[in-house]
Amino acid sequence: MLRYLIPVGLLAALVAFFFVGLGRDKQTLPSPLLGKPAPAFSLPRVDDPTQTVSNKDFAGQPYVLNVWATWCVGCRQEHDALLAIAARGEVPIVGLNWKDERDLAQQWLRELGNPYVVTAFDQEGRVAIDWGVYGAPETFLVDSAGNVIHKHVAPLTVEIWEREFLPLLKQQAVSR
């Protein structure tokens, strides 16, 4: 009896491993930033190089940081969703224009609409590295204490916003 049970058991264990492995999302990497203070940045604005934008500008209030670029197809995909979310006025959306060209970025915002309260221009991608960005679009939620509390990699939709971001934002409002 045992001599049959052993191979069957081994097979079952293998199947279990593969099953769990198949179901896991291997594209989205867990962010080590979650629960930690948002990396500080100070960058020129995309619309006006003489002015800077820093995360100190948003101290004491929750905000969303959205990493985008004109070369990023997923960013175009999510743009309408960002406009819709911005129109709800629940939280300011800060843009981080990543490794892009200024005139193209300005043209993008003119043509497609601007969901951002302000967009920082990270041409060299240094701030993006501090935030652990590995592929646009990426969207971070920062709480009023300045901690990163959520990260979404891939185009944002209003459904994802309502399911993943909004509950965290409401918790924030309650605990304050």
């Binding site: 990497l29 867990p30 962010s31 080590p32 930033l33 501090d130 935030w131 652990g132 590995y134």
Partner: peptide, 8 residues
């Protein structure tokens, strides 16, 4: 590197 990108 790991502070930003994790052990991966």
């Amino acid at each position: 590197m790991t502070d930003r990108y994790g052990d991966y």
